[in-house]
Design a protein around this nucleic acid. Sequence first.
DNA 1: TTAAGTGTAATAATTTTTGTTACATTAATG
DNA 2: CATTAATGTAACAAAAATTATTACACTTAA
Lengths: 136, 136
Amino acid sequence: MSNTRFATALHILTLLADAKGEWLSSDWIAGSINIHPVIVRKELGVLNDAGLVLSRKGKEGGFTLAVGSEDITMDAIYLAIKNSNVLGKKNNQPNPKCPIGKDINEKLDVLFTGIDNSVVRELSGKTLADFVSEFH
Amino acid sequence: MSNTRFATALHILTLLADAKGEWLSSDWIAGSINIHPVIVRKELGVLNDAGLVLSRKGKEGGFTLAVGSEDITMDAIYLAIKNSNVLGKKNNQPNPKCPIGKDINEKLDVLFTGIDNSVVRELSGKTLADFVSEFH
DNA sequence: TTAAGTGTAATAATTTTTGTTACATTAATG
DNA sequence: CATTAATGTAACAAAAATTATTACACTTAA
């Protein structure tokens, strides 16, 4: 992954966990990460769809965690934002006339999925609460 | 990773393993993957630096494996081409005045490195020979 | 000496990612 | 009930990363 989506999502969730029930605005969060508030709202939309946060519109609106930080594991965050395989992309049109090229993408699929799953398994062993507790 | 470097490198190495000592040209390899020969030569340069292949210049030149495919583990291929963390990039300038923003990047570093290592560990359990044997 | 390769720099094109603007909508509050 | 401060989201712009292409110096076999 050469994007900042996991780092951004985890930063957001860490702030929300640290806020202990306070509703934080996208502007405030953006100020901590130092990115554009619209990006924060977009990512919060994704986290909302994943059931990790709640949002409230209008004045005094904002965001808060949907569940306790002990109940949010890192794999849930990762799966919410994941948009590619750990080992990257496959080449588009390997040569169908080549015995290797013909079948390589299905073999890569198996390998890529296995590695993706191992990352998810690894991430499932750590909670947001664990991460937040490292800040003191 | 949103690039095709691992897929390309593994495709190259699979062809070389399958060729059993024949020297293959970058043009021929490019034809199987269906990408530009210059990209193949660049990637082969990287694999050469990593000690995985041998190259020969001039007429009748080309590439071959430097060691047997049973002795090439997937982690060696991955480490040769890896240029980012599995969990992506960190945000550049988190706010130093925020208690979370101040320290988040060093905490992310630890998490990111741990996940990277787990992927390498996972990949170390599979050889190029294992992969090639899936094609029949 | 020619033909067929590698090695690599420079640059262009494409795709992905991030940032920005604009504005409709929502809700609290004086 | 008007004002203020939020979210939600589309459309677009800018920047960064990735891939493709061109060009050519160099190498080696025959």
